[in-house]
Design a protein around this nucleic acid. Sequence first.
DNA 1: CATCTTAGTGTCATTCTGACTTTAAGCGCA
DNA 2: TGCGCTTAAAGTCAGAATGACACTAAGATG
Lengths: 230, 230
Amino acid sequence: MTESTQSAFVAPNLAVSTVIFTLRPDELGKLKVALPLVRRIRAPFDGQWALPGGPLNITEDLIQAASRNLLETTGLEPRYLEQLYAFGSLDRSPGSNLADRVVSIVYWALVGSEEATAVSESANIHWFEADQLPTLAFDHNQIVEYALGRLRNKLAYARIAHSFLAETFTLAQLREVYEAVLDRDLDPGNFRRMVEADGIVEPTGERLAGTRHRPPQLYRATTSATGETK
Amino acid sequence: MTESTQSAFVAPNLAVSTVIFTLRPDELGKLKVALPLVRRIRAPFDGQWALPGGPLNITEDLIQAASRNLLETTGLEPRYLEQLYAFGSLDRSPGSNLADRVVSIVYWALVGSEEATAVSESANIHWFEADQLPTLAFDHNQIVEYALGRLRNKLAYARIAHSFLAETFTLAQLREVYEAVLDRDLDPGNFRRMVEADGIVEPTGERLAGTRHRPPQLYRATTSATGETK
DNA sequence: CATCTTAGTGTCATTCTGACTTTAAGCGCA
DNA sequence: TGCGCTTAAAGTCAGAATGACACTAAGATG
């Protein structure tokens, strides 16, 4: 009844998957939330798109597995990485028998927009806009929706927005991140006030030149929240 | 690399544990957050107190396992039940070898204060005040702290406080719940205003008699949030 | 040099929040 | 009977936070 270490028990398989978010411009040049998916090459759901993931190696931490996942799929290091949820319903893989049951511990990650655009795609790895996903394998559509909710919610109180951007950035760029994630326009003045009140950025002293207008101040993030280390 | 169903892989053991919260009066009659712990009867941590839990049966959902856990430990049904976090660090059980590695998916639950006081204790099951815990087995002290944080945070925006109370209750009783969980006094007038603005309760029309003062209105919760069903 | 565009500052009304006051309505007790 | 005690319930007020919007600054473009 208490936490036990008996190995004779028939345990479900344990997998770690990762929802990897970045921002990329759509055909109109507007930033959109995007994520990479991998094409399955075996049953069930053979040929369908799914979240990157795989079985948990017994020698690695959960977060290490997620990070490895991310590296194997995109070649990138996460700028933010956090556990999302453990999905373990019996009906996740309809029609499969119990011995094939998989409990997935899902992480969500943010990667830099710049790095992500450099990632090469292949026939079996493709980046999708988050609001234009096809029908995915397993319960992965629900998982992505859940992850998007977490991202939107967390943006409001955690210092994670800069994870999409380079080391330094303008407030307009930071605002674009919020607008892309929240999918609505924000008032530039009010946004500046909020950002300054929260102290999430500090000016570098540098200005961004070459724009067609008054040169904006460049900022950097004050605290580097890299996610949990639990 | 993608989610797989190969069973040959050496997987860590999967357990489900539950942090069960209730409120009970301390020696001064003030409500305090309390939770039941079970004494371990095998290594590692033999004799120490631990969260109730056990291996996940391959035929049951995660949340079912948590609920069963709760029933087996306390004989009670949860009034609220939600997944907390999956703990899977390699160093959770210091000194053990990899084959004994356990990944725990932890749930947290709320049970009614009244039902909980009727629960019998034994030599191996005991209720502790949350802020007066001994050193627990594994990483369970950290887990309880994390669960307490979630409880306090969630109280602010979710309709869960009534889960500690009976079907009907006074606003003073509801306020006591908040005060116990947040561990600070709240202004009765402001609390009433908040509760009414949020519409989390509705008056029953009945009044509580037998008090030494003006009889207060009885309320019931408007929506019954029982937690997730995911 | 006039115009366009975004940067950056400032204002105002509304809402939210914490601290506090006032009145209502029971009970216990002289 | 009525006075005082206690908590219920309603109301007041000042400061903070928020959304909408106006205004000035400073570059590029032609």
